[in-house]
Amino acid sequence: MEEERSENMMSKLLVRLNSTARHLLFRVVSTGPIPQHIAFILDGNRRFAKKWNLTEGGGHKAGFLALMSVLKYCYEIGVKYVTVYAFSLDNFNRRPDEVQYVMDLMQEKIEGFLKELTLVNKYGVRVLFVGDIERLYTPVRVAAEKAMEATAHNTTTYLLVCVAYTSSHEIPRAIYESCEEKSGVTRVTMNGNGYGNGDDHEVGIKVVDLEKHMYFRVAPDPDILVRSSGETRLSNFLVWQTVNCVLYSPKALWPEMGLWQVVWGILKFQKNYKYLEKKKKQA
């Protein structure tokens, strides 16, 4: 009994020391500019499961735990928007049993999230599901809508979860809706500047028209795009929004992502900050 009490005290002490060290580290990092928005491609869950001989789906469960830690670190250091690429439209082409497993896991985690609303509201996290959410299986879509409604009043930090999303779907959809909005005119045109040629019966579509209809109109463009597992492909994710953005590809598989990957990504952003700001002003 005494030994167990000593172990618990030591465990609490280590947790407290770890928290103190982390906050000191964040204070040092915060002397430089902090990104407003970090986006993550969650790559490597299945490879992690294979690497550690986990049962099918074990990699996704480990990946969810990593996501919770990464979110905590981002919000603690002052990042306002965090976006995660949870499930692309292309993922629906995977084996039906794998798609079903991910959908079930997503529903389970969203419903678990809804049970922790007191803590979520304490930190002011607003959750937004971004993409063609009508494509989600009904129980997942209903749970996602409940999470968005339950956190709609929060404005301190934002978690954007990309589901049933690809840029090749988002961009044509934005063009179509822009055309629909201008459907009263004879013809809608686009040129390099986003304008028509000046004819009285033609109205051009501007960049601002497209961005008004993008799924990501709800957040500023990312400052950093992080893809785990060392891959450097965008995989049809935020192609429009990452023109002036730091791309960071740590070798860690997604379930292995943690504090140091977040810190290194921010340091890389700070190293390139002046150049990125110059490019944004020229855009």
Results as ranks from 00 to 15, higher is better:
107 Q>V: 11
83 T>C: 03
139 P>A: 04
86 A>C: 15
121 N>D: 15
113 F>R: 03
176 Y>T: 03
151 T>M: 09
173 R>M: 13
81 Y>I: 05
140 V>M: 06
176 Y>L: 11
153 H>S: 13
135 R>N: 08
82 V>E: 04
154 N>C: 15
78 G>Y: 02
164 A>I: 11
173 R>P: 05
153 H>T: 12
94 R>N: 14
85 Y>K: 02
97 D>S: 15
79 V>C: 05
144 A>N: 01
71 L>C: 10
116 E>H: 10
93 N>S: 14
137 Y>R: 02
172 P>L: 10
140 V>D: 01
95 R>D: 10
162 C>E: 07
146 K>I: 10
131 G>Q: 06
109 K>M: 12
123 Y>R: 04
142 V>W: 06
77 I>Q: 02
157 T>Q: 08
91 N>Q: 12
116 E>N: 09
83 T>Y: 10
121 N>A: 06
188 V>H: 07
115 K>Q: 15
96 P>L: 08
97 D>E: 15
127 V>H: 04
105 L>F: 13
102 V>Y: 09
150 A>G: 08
168 S>R: 15
119 L>P: 01
148 M>I: 11
184 G>D: 15
95 R>M: 06
175 I>P: 05
104 D>E: 14
74 C>E: 01
125 V>P: 04
116 E>M: 11
136 L>W: 12
155 T>C: 04
95 R>H: 15
134 E>M: 01
156 T>R: 15
154 N>L: 05
156 T>C: 05
113 F>W: 09
107 Q>H: 07
81 Y>H: 10
164 A>R: 03
134 E>V: 10
181 E>Q: 13
119 L>T: 05
183 S>I: 13
77 I>A: 00
105 L>D: 06
72 K>L: 06
162 C>I: 07
99 V>E: 07
179 C>A: 14
88 S>Y: 13
158 Y>I: 01
169 H>D: 11
71 L>Q: 09
99 V>C: 10
149 E>M: 11
101 Y>L: 14
131 G>C: 08
163 V>I: 14
174 A>F: 00
165 Y>D: 06
127 V>P: 01
100 Q>N: 12
86 A>D: 04
155 T>V: 13
146 K>V: 08
96 P>H: 14
159 L>R: 08
129 F>G: 04
133 I>M: 08
109 K>L: 00
79 V>S: 01
149 E>C: 09
180 E>S: 07
99 V>H: 07
130 V>P: 01
115 K>P: 04
105 L>T: 09
74 C>L: 03
111 E>S: 09
137 Y>V: 06
116 E>G: 03
107 Q>P: 04
135 R>A: 11
135 R>E: 12
160 L>T: 03
186 T>E: 11
92 F>N: 01
142 V>S: 04
99 V>M: 10
103 M>I: 14
146 K>E: 12
169 H>Y: 11
78 G>K: 03
184 G>S: 06
138 T>H: 09
122 K>G: 08
104 D>C: 08
125 V>H: 05
129 F>E: 02
188 V>M: 11
173 R>H: 13
185 V>A: 00
93 N>G: 05
108 E>R: 10
127 V>K: 02
75 Y>C: 00
165 Y>K: 02
